[in-house]
Design a protein around this nucleic acid. Structure first.
Lengths: 167, 167
DNA sequence: CTAGATAATCAACAACATTTAGTATATCAC
DNA sequence: GTGATATACTAAATGTTGTTGATTATCTAG
């Protein structure tokens, strides 16, 4: 196992807050990493940008303009074209030129695309459950309490910041 | 602004739970994206894997073996070599061969590396505060309450899964 | 000393995302 | 129609990460 040596130096003051902040960051990294691996599964073969682009399209009844999609997913238009190309190859989305403004390309998720998103969500749910399966019920409860307190602390921080700015 | 058309189709049943799940996923994507952009700032010029590798080293008093670092950050050894190369170029870490086992390369964060991590954390905190600055105090409170309930719901899901498996 | 295991790196390559700049097409104002 | 603008795509170049398999150096067991 990896040995961990924590610092206690007097100047620099490593506070519990710092520890928690670091833990949250590390958890975020690991979760992201785990999700990446899930998406890379042979059933899906998606990358993270591809999935989130698809996810944005999935609930829409109507097709979405490329430019709107780029804005919504915070990707540049040129970058999005590549991502949408790859989704198109996999037949997860369809490109249709708008009848009214023939410059525009409207993108819509296909039925297969919707199915895949559903599968991925299901797999992710199972993955999360498995990730916590080794914890005892009491440990999960404790974890939840702690997370609640983290959120409460974040709320307080935000209130203070807000108060300071609006005073 | 992007027009959003939500689906109400009878089969398929779009539940509020689905909506929230999607929102959480989208928030996670946007947060990740925002963080990426922050790390790309001229002050830092880091990538996400580079930052989290550095983050893992930052609290350690002693240097860390490459293999342990790879395991901890969930990267392959070969992949990590490249990441550490780039951190080394930026003088954020130092490589030292272990005296006892000269095969091993020990990696340690430099003072400059620690400073940069601190700067990034600070910037991130400010970024988060700015992201929520446009919310009224009552809205933030409401948001926090809702997040609490999301977490509680997650806990229940986990308990059920746990109960089913252990029954 | 030798054989084999171990640690890290290297080499070669593929995939993806990203940027910049340029292009084709279509729309709109006049 | 003409010129300006808008929309999406393309091309080319870059950087990072990732994989696989070989390689180098080192240690350890016998």
């Amino acid at each position: 196992m990896t040995q961990v040596h924590r610092e206690q130096h007097a100047e620099g003051e490593r506070t519990p807050f710092d520890e928690i902040e670091r833990s949250l960051m590390q958890i975020s990294w690991l979760a992201q990493r785990q999700f990446m691996q899930l998406l890379d599964d042979e059933r899906f073969r998606l990358t993270v940008p591809q999935f989130y682009t698809l996810l944005h399209l999935e609930p829409l009844t109507e097709a979405c303009k490329m430019s709107d999609l780029a804005e919504a997913t915070h990707q540049s238009a040129a970058s999005l074209t590549g991502v949408v190309d790859r989704l198109d190859e996999k037949q997860l989305i369809e490109r249709v030129r708008d009848a009214k403004d023939r410059r525009q390309v409207m993108v819509a998720v296909t039925t297969y695309g919707r199915e895949l998103v559903a599968e991925i969500k299901q797999a992710r749910r199972e993955q999360m459950q498995m990730a916590l399966a080794h914890l005892a019920e009491t440990e999960i409860e404790a974890l939840m309490l702690l997370l609640d307190r983290v959120l409460a602390g974040m709320a307080r921080t935000l209130e203070r910041a807000e108060g300071g700015r609006l005073a």
